[in-house]
Design a protein around this nucleic acid. Structure first.
Lengths: 221, 221
DNA sequence: GTCTATAGAGCGATAGAC
DNA sequence: GTCTATCGCTCTATAGAC
């Protein structure tokens, strides 16, 4: 769809254009304060752009969120798939720890300009706005979740599909909570455990999840 | 402080009084939609009470939240301590699974009138409003968290204090995410795994966390 | 002590000039 | 295509009647 121009005239997809500035500012502010915690005016001010541009380019505040969400998830999921493929090349079935890291590492990567992980956006949003958000989650993660659930099933053949679902759910909780970054554990540990340190999180979280996922199957009624 | 009256006149602490009605309605609505997602007017309407009462009894919307939070956490923590003491009576050190269940079960209990776990309130709030919320969390949970971290340390003498902190953090993530109730896993599993079924959650979560917490200590630089 | 009424600010969205 | 201006609405908090 994108057409190359002969001139240097700014197009909508270039970094400094109005919609790009809006998406960048919105990603940061939504991640910091959620959807209801930020106004369109604040986003426009942070982007140094006219407030009316939001309606013009994205139809509404929700339209802007949808675009932010999409652009946010796409590269993260691509990196997840790339790492998962690499893990599969190293071993069949892939090592459990490698699958977990392929899922977690891209989620904890820091965004370009902010100091928060990309996943904080989703962690913060996951509580509110359930109408629109369910749609966005399904659109952006059905394929990704399915593939990782399959990979976990390969690694853990002693488990039923339901075991995998439950444990994948708990895994998501640990990752989201960490990405949301409540510094509670940093306070309690007097600074020694810092959820903002993604390498430390991966080092601690992967063995924890590996052990949890490898637990014996749960007998169900 | 409460004084018994000779008459049936309503006092501030009686179930149907204005502040009680406000707290009950606010607990439900804040848990459903977060702090920014609900207006004082909506809360007052749900309580069938005048909107101005919020300012009168609680000084502000935030004051109402603080009261809701306090009343919400206190009985839950009391039940946690009661269950933890019972686990200690059965064995010294207490069984790991018993400690975990003592922490989790009261958090997943359903509120009186709503169908959501009491913990959903905290899960939803934990993303937004960090200024006030950090204060509330510290006020309401420092004692509780400390005692459970100690109990986990007793159960898991092979772990360092930092191992315990990290794993307690991941535990919180799994519990909060479940309580926030994203039915994502219910959809993916075509209804077979339902995070709203607290008995099922406890059955699945306790073995998962037991195994995760019991993992070998992580070598740290 | 509880109400009505409203102040004062901020909201999302849009019409219409340029 | 991007702006200014503003509509119509909702918000929190409070002043003052009863």
């Amino acid at each position: 769809m994108k057409i190359e121009r002969h001139t240097a005239t700014a197009t909508d997809d270039e970094p400094g254009s109005t919609p790009e500035r809006l998406v960048a500012a919105a990603e940061r502010l939504f991640a910091e304060r959620g959807f209801n915690g930020v106004s369109v005016r604040e986003i426009a001010a942070a982007a140094a752009v006219n407030p009316a541009s939001v309606g013009y380019y994205f139809r509404s505040k929700e339209g802007l969120l949808a675009e932010v969400y999409r652009r946010h998830c796409q590269p993260m999921n691509e990196e997840r798939f790339r790492l998962l493929a690499a893990a599969r090349e190293r071993a069949r079935p892939p090592a459990l720890a490698a699958v977990l890291e392929a899922f977690i590492r891209p989620a904890l990567k820091l965004t370009g300009d902010a100091k928060a992980p990309v996943t904080r956006l989703r962690a913060v949003l996951s509580a509110e706005n359930s109408e629109l958000l369910d749609k966005l989650v399904a659109e952006n993660f059905d394929r990704s979740s399915g593939r990782f659930i399959d990979a976990l099933g390969e690694c853990l053949p002693h488990l039923s599909r339901d075991d995998i679902y439950w444990r994948f759910h708990f895994l998501l909780g640990a990752v989201y909570y960490t990405a949301a970054g409540p510094h509670r554990i940093r306070t309690l540990s007097q600074g020694r455990c810092d959820p903002a340190d993604s390498e430390a999180v991966i080092r601690e979280l992967v063995p924890f999840l590996s052990a949890g996922l490898s637990a014996p199957p749960v007998p169900r009624p």
